[in-house]
Computed example of a mutant assay.
Amino acid sequence: MSKKTARPACTVKPRTPRIIPPGMTDERMRLLRLLATKWVNGTVLHYWFFNGPAPQLQAVRDAFTEWKALKIGLEFVEVQNSSEAEVRIGFDQADGSWSYIGRDILGIAATQPTMNFGWDLTDAYGHTTALHEIGHTLGMPHEHQSPFAGIVWDEQKVYDYFTGEPNNWSREQTFSNVLSKIDPSEVEGSNWDPNSVMEYWFPAGLIVQPAQYHDGLEPAGGLSAADKEWVLRFYPALKAAIPSLKPFVSVPLSLVPGGQANFNIVPGETRKYELGTFGTADTVLVLFEEVDGQLRQLAANDDSGTDRNAKIQVKLFKDRKYVARVRLYWAGASGHTGIMLW
């Protein structure tokens, strides 16, 4: 598709606002916002399709495969029932292409899509679109909205372009998806990647600065080197063997912000258990159960921004296999926390 041809663009659904208590340090607030949308590494994301043409479904499957081929710690599994899926994918051609961001999808009703594709995915631009929307589900924002991009817009031309064909957005949608900047606390690093899969294509005249993009910005398409680095930083390949967590044995954790610890649990008896962290820390704690060889989320708790610790109360069954994963946002002055099953 040439630079003279207008291209449809992705929209992002409104973020779930995170309430930050007053008096929080800047560093703690930054970490909470940075990691709020990220999954615990090792999560199995189950995806399900609403009705769609077979070539479009296969294009999305191929995009999931391409992300996974980077050897990230997340898994993607297609399921046949919407009630089993965290990621529910529609093909409403009248609704454009969009996705919710990261863990925000868990707050969407099981009858509703969390992602939609509104145009053909079988050409090069469509393939990049599929990768882009999955990137949102992994927790990636739009690249051009980075506060470090340094883009100066001709705002009226931006409004004129996106409120016209083929997007037909409102001014509010245009501002939200193009002109508004992400809070610096929600972005890691300070570089802008104009070739990111999360970057839009822009025609000539919309960007005033940097001057090299005044004649238009057309990313190469597909995953850039920086995209691959980003996803492997948050979701590195998991170690094959992880330690076991035994009842009434506390395990100290010394994690860097964004770091994670993983534990196998095989109960010796069927009963109600409590699983929790302790110490001055903000964590997200997730418990998975192995079902037919796959891990399915059983329970979760996020204590970030509060004065309490993450805790899960759940009935576990003798000799079944469970996995606990705890990801750290912030660990106070000491940098130490712990976990225990009892």
Rank of each mutant, 00 (worst) to 15 (best):
I151C: 08
S176H: 10
P166E: 02
Y161L: 04
R171P: 03
A149S: 14
E165G: 12
S180Q: 14
W153L: 07
Q156T: 14
V152R: 04
N177I: 04
Y159I: 13
L179S: 05
T174D: 14
W153D: 02
G150L: 08
D154I: 03
E165R: 06
E165H: 10
T163A: 03
F175A: 11
P166F: 00
V158P: 03
Q173F: 02
F162W: 03
Y159F: 15
E172T: 11
K157L: 15
N177K: 01
S180C: 07
Q173D: 15
K181N: 07
E155I: 10
S176T: 13
N177M: 04
K181Y: 03
D154W: 06
E155K: 09
G164M: 07
R171S: 09
E165D: 11
S176E: 13
Q156S: 13
V152G: 03
W169A: 06
Y159H: 10
S180L: 14
E172N: 09
D160H: 07
N167W: 01
P166S: 11
F162Q: 02
L179V: 04
W169R: 00
G164T: 07
F162I: 01
I151K: 00
N177F: 03
S176W: 11
N167H: 06
S180E: 15
I151M: 10
N167E: 06
E155Q: 13
L179K: 06
I151R: 01
T163Y: 04
T174L: 05
T174N: 02
R171Y: 07
V152L: 11
D160A: 07
S170H: 12
D154S: 09
Y161F: 15
E172F: 09
G164H: 06
E165W: 04
P166R: 07
Q173A: 12
W169S: 08
K181E: 14
T174R: 03
L179M: 14
V152E: 05
A149L: 12
W169I: 08
Y159V: 09
V152K: 08
Y161E: 07
Y159K: 08
V178N: 00
W169L: 06
V178H: 01
D160R: 03
E172H: 10
Q173N: 12
I151F: 04
Q173G: 01
S180V: 12
E172S: 10
Y159P: 00
F175S: 11
E155S: 07
V178D: 02
W153G: 00
T174E: 02
T163L: 11
N177V: 10
S180K: 15
K157S: 13
Y161W: 10
F175H: 15
R171M: 09
T163D: 14
D160C: 02
P166D: 00
V178A: 04
E172K: 12
T174W: 04
S170Q: 14
W169K: 08
S180T: 15
I151E: 01
Q156F: 00
I151Y: 03
E155H: 08
F175R: 09
S176Y: 10
T163F: 05
